[in-house]
Design a protein around this nucleic acid. Structure first.
Lengths: 214, 214
DNA sequence: TTCGATTTGAGGGAAAACCCCTATAGTACC
DNA sequence: GGTACTATAGGGGTTTTCCCTCAAATCGAA
């Protein structure tokens, strides 16, 4: 596996390199400090995985770099690795061909797990939730919510249906489980998020644009 | 009071004229079929009240006409009178200096009452709700919600706070009333809207963009 | 002035939700 | 093989909400 890491901080570059070399079979790792340099490298070598920091001080804008890299390396997995989890950036990253959007506060093992899934062909975006209302379909976009919101897939479903106003009974019927289980999920969610009041859930839901998606 | 009515349907023009002449002391009524004609008239006469249909087939786009009319007649009350209550139009109308946005399915007396308030200096927009979270302030924008959602001001507050996830107790404390009263308001709201499940409330709230406003 | 709507509040009982704890089975990680 | 997470579900008790009814004060409209 050939890897390109684009970040303006040397520490981050090296840390990432170590993590990845530890977790994957890596043939080579190249580094770039900013977009232009990355593009130079992408014209000379082909990569399997490109980790791209969005916030680079000088040089090319992150999204433009992404666009250019995607053109140069159509088959590479390009993963945005950012300080911020603002939805706008994620949206842009998604639209411009990124395969994932990870935030820097993720722990090492979480990051490796995420990269693993991405290498398997999944797309990971924190606030693109899996649709709990869809009856089926080819969900290739996996939610990375577990790392932004530390919720499991099932919990995410319960969370979404709850903030949309569905009662425990309704959710239980819809998911084919007992009311008690829904209740347990809700409690776990409250614990994980550190939220007691339901209005706090709604705040979070608004922040993660649940109402725009469903 | 000098009135200008802009609508491409003769029936609507005449009906409106009769209604207004019946309810107000009217010096003169002018008519226009579309935007350009309205602007011509606005250059020749000054008006106190302009009723403007947004959906006019040919000629000037409604919003552009509004903009032009507002420039020509800064002191006139300009009221949009539309078939549709889409929020986008309302937003546009509001931003471009309209004093109100009324829908054609309103009954005559409702319309007169609305125009009355507008002539008194209020602004009326169906889905611009009064902020139930604001502690006070100069609320000049009145909600015309009673005609779109048939809810009283207090009910609108309870509705909004409820869909935002607040409990009856929280709402009671916030509004300085008893829990029982909040409960009653909720029941009245359910009756008026014909909605039983809270998820239905959320549907309505989404439709009226409660989550974008609060 | 009477009628309807609004706002306020309560009683009483049924239903739902919430809280805390326990428990099992599967999966995944080290 | 132990530890952690996930998903499932029950017991038992408390709190909240829901439902239906009644009622008083206010206010604008017919």
């Amino acid at each position: 596996m050939k890897v390109l890491i684009v970040d303006d901080h040397a520490v981050v570059r090296d840390g990432l390199a170590l993590l990845i070399q530890d977790a994957f079979v890596v043939d080579s790792v190249h580094f770039a400090q900013e977009g232009r340099e990355a593009i130079q490298l992408a014209m000379q070598h082909s990569f399997d995985l490109i980790l791209l920091d969005l916030s680079m001080p000088d040089g090319l804008d992150g999204i433009l770099a992404l666009l250019e890299l995607r053109k140069l390396q159509p088959k590479a997995r390009i993963v945005i690795f950012s300080m911020y989890d603002e939805e706008v950036y994620q949206q842009k990253a998604y639209e411009n061909g990124a395969d994932g959007y990870l935030v820097k506060r993720m722990k090492g093992d979480e990051l490796v797990r995420a990269l693993d899934r991405i290498m398997l062909g999944k797309k990971l975006f924190p606030t693109v939730h899996p649709d709990p209302l869809a009856h089926g379909g080819d969900e290739r976009v996996e939610s990375a919510a577990p790392w932004v919101l530390p919720l499991s897939p099932r919990e995410t479903e319960v969370f979404t249906l709850t903030v949309l106003g569905h009662s425990q009974r309704e959710i239980a019927e819809r998911l084919g489980i007992s009311v008690k289980t829904v209740e347990n999920h809700r409690q776990h969610i409250s614990q994980k998020l550190g939220l007691s009041k339901r209005s706090d859930w709604l705040e979070v839901a608004k922040k993660y644009k649940v109402f725009e998606l469903y």
